[in-house]
């Protein structure tokens, strides 16, 4: 493989990785506070692509309006899911919350099959983002650059929220200790609702960009992407936002590179991803950047 092809694949890997990173952040934010794997997160990602699709094709909105409205609507959906499904189970055993999350995920998938139809739909292609640019001898879609830039901007915004605002401080405090934070006068449910909205909004951004890059959307598309984003969050160290982003980029680049370097193994891509996940869980369960969490007796 020559250097140009390598760079081209790297660019593709980074843009897939940015999508994983955006979704992984949602997992990590929620896991950090509630210790809950939000199984439905991948399906929120799927819903976002459908919302954006219908905004453009059914309501004839310009794409930027449709995308903005989608992000807001999906943030609201995330908030509502927390209120309806997870809030009643705050004090329940963690496994009950996990089963509920699986139920929510199944509901969203089947709801999407019924309402949107099971057949894949073509996502509208934006001409200005699909132009090819010639940079240093490699031809790359503009989209391949736009995706990581949007991802990094969203990441910076998130870090600003987390570390410079009051609500971000409350989120960080909750991830340390929910009960103590409540005693300090923080409305925990409000903050958790906001966290869900924030995570879902980021997943919506990721979903729209994923749909532009791979323009075929179907109701079950969120399962695999969601699982991989979760794996990215674990690799990066769950509960850590930067770790999730790094894990996402790592996983995206690795997936593209394996297929590029060993085309005969392309069918086994998922095997590699899951194997890496299990190896990480056994060898270094705290991930690249996570802090060690002692299991309390």
């Amino acid at each position: 493989m020559n250097i140009q092809l390598f760079l081209q694949n790297l660019a593709n890997g980074v843009s897939l990785g940015s999508v994983y990173a955006l979704i992984a952040i949602g997992y990590t934010l929620i896991y950090g506070i509630l210790r809950l794997i939000n199984f439905a997160h991948g399906d929120i990602f799927m819903l976002a692509t459908y919302f954006a699709f219908y905004g453009i094709s059914l309501l004839f909105l310009p794409w930027y309006v449709s995308f903005t409205l989608t992000v807001i609507a999906i943030a609201l959906v995330g908030f509502l899911i927390d209120r309806i499904a997870y809030k009643p189970l705050r004090n329940a055993p963690r496994i009950s919350a996990l089963i509920t999350a699986i139920a929510v995920s199944l509901f969203l998938e089947n709801f999407a099959i019924v309402v949107f139809g099971g057949r894949p739909k073509p996502f509208p292609v934006l001409p200005e983002l699909n132009k090819m640019s010639l940079i240093g001898g490699i031809r790359i879609q503009n989209l391949t650059f736009v995706i990581p830039i949007v991802a990094i901007l969203s990441l910076l915004l998130l870090i600003w929220i987390l570390f410079k605002t009051k609500i971000g401080m409350a989120m960080r405090a909750l991830s340390r200790d929910i009960d103590t934070t409540k005693l300090m006068g923080v409305d925990a449910d409000k903050i958790i609702g906001f966290t869900f909205a924030l995570g879902s909004g980021l997943a919506a951004i990721g979903g729209i960009m994923y749909a532009m890059k791979y323009p075929s959307i179907y109701p079950l598309m969120g399962i695999m992407v969601g699982l991989k984003a979760f794996i990215a969050a674990v690799i990066g160290g769950i509960g850590n936002v930067l770790g999730a982003a790094l894990g996402g980029f790592f996983l995206g680049v690795m997936e593209i590179m394996i297929v590029a370097l060993f085309p005969s193994l392309s069918g086994f891509r998922d095997v590699f991803t899951f194997s890496i996940f299990i190896i990480f869980l056994i060898v270094k369960p705290t991930g690249i950047m996570g802090e060690s969490m002692e299991e309390k007796v």
Binding site: R35, L36, I37, R94, I95, L98, L227, F230, I231, V234, G267, F268, D270, V271, F274, S275, F277, I278, L281, I282, P285, E295
Partner: peptide
């Protein structure tokens, strides 16, 4: 996998069944 606990174990077993599927 059984060294893991709770939700990690759930995802790891899900991962293994996905590996068998692939």
């Amino acid at each position: 996998v059984l060294r893991l606990k709770g939700d990690y174990l759930a995802i790891a077993t899900l991962g293994f069944s996905q590996i068998i599927f692939v």
